[in-house]
């Protein structure tokens, strides 16, 4: 089978359209169901406030307030990666959509990328809202000196996180019905180890082994670096390790997510399950 240049170009155009269309569904959802966004901004803010009061009660240094707010803002991405991307293929299967993706000429990766892109975009809006409201409510101070480093770290974190979400999406489907429970189970350990409400990597409390394991989750490096850059006034040279770590995660997660997707499709076509409803 020969594939000319025109063919590759057609494929690319087709798949860009698919990415856009799938992302569009996400963004439409955001506009059609504003209460989702309200919930996803308000609910994290409630526990975020509780922890800020707890730090106040403990008389912790003032920057801990900002730590919590940044953590809460980044947590929005993790929720979206878990529920909006990882559990999504499973969900699409349940609603009977998945097999229509499977029988269209669109690349499955394009579908996943569309989901991720749409999710990342509207979660960024939510995340910024959390940051803004948190900053208005409490007397926090930021000290940002290196905005380029912040942007690099943020983009790497998001890429790694959504790469992980895309990997999980296929794995969740392979594991079937437990998908939502796995997502649910993964929620708390992330709070604990990624340091949503406290610093992990720079803390004395955690052993090196714990820090290493925690770093598997892109959120850990991401939150720590963003806190250093945004709150502690650090620069690029102080977050080099974070950048290397995040880049490594991206380099591992993106190809793995593609492999897992292929594997999932293969299992599905071979055994006649996974993508098909009622089975």
């Amino acid at each position: 089978m020969s594939r000319g240049r025109g063919n590759i170009k057609d494929d690319l155009i087709l798949n860009l359209k698919v990415v856009y269309a799938r992302a569009y569904v996400r963004l439409k959802g955001l506009l059609r169901e504003p209460h989702w966004s309200i919930a996803e901004v308000t609910i994290p803010l409630l526990s975020l406030c509780a922890y800020i009061y707890m730090y106040t009660m403990l008389d912790a240094p003032i920057e801990y307030m900002a730590f919590v707010i940044v953590g809460g803002a980044m947590l929005a991405f993790w929720s979206n990666v878990l529920w909006g991307v990882s559990a999504q293929l499973y969900w699409e299967k349940e609603t009977g959509m998945l097999q229509h993706y499977m029988l269209s000429p669109a690349s499955r990766l394009a579908v996943l990328l569309g989901m991720a892109a749409g999710g990342a975009l509207n979660t960024t809006l939510r995340s910024i809202s959390i940051l803004l409201v948190g900053t208005l409510l409490f007397p926090v101070e930021y000290n940002l000196l290196d905005i380029n480093a912040l942007l690099i770290v943020f983009l790497l974190t998001i890429t790694a996180l959504y790469g992980m979400g895309m990997l999980f999406a296929s794995l969740f489907l392979l594991y079937g019905r437990e998908a939502t429970h796995i997502a649910d189970l993964l929620q708390e350990p992330i709070y604990l180890f990624s340091g949503i409400y406290y610093p992990v990597l720079s803390s004395q409390i955690f052993s090196q082994a714990v820090k290493l394991v925690a770093s598997i989750i892109p959120l850990t490096f991401g939150i720590d670096a963003i806190r250093l850059l945004l709150i502690m006034g650090k620069g690029m040279e102080d977050v080099l390790l974070h950048i290397v770590g995040l880049s490594l995660l991206v380099a591992i997660l993106l190809p793995s997510s593609y492999i897992a997707l292929r594997k999932m499709e293969d299992v599905s076509k071979r055994h006649g399950r996974l993508t098909l409803r009622w089975q």
């Binding site: 922890y51 707890m54 730090y55 403990l58 008389d59 912790a60 240094p61 801990y64 604990l192 409400y197 406290y198 610093p199 803390s203 004395q204 409390i205």
Partner: peptide
């Protein structure tokens, strides 16, 4: 853990 970290960072 929030308690441990917060109280370690403060002087109480």
């Amino acid at each position: 853990l929030v308690f441990v970290i917060g109280s370690t960072a403060s002087s109480i």
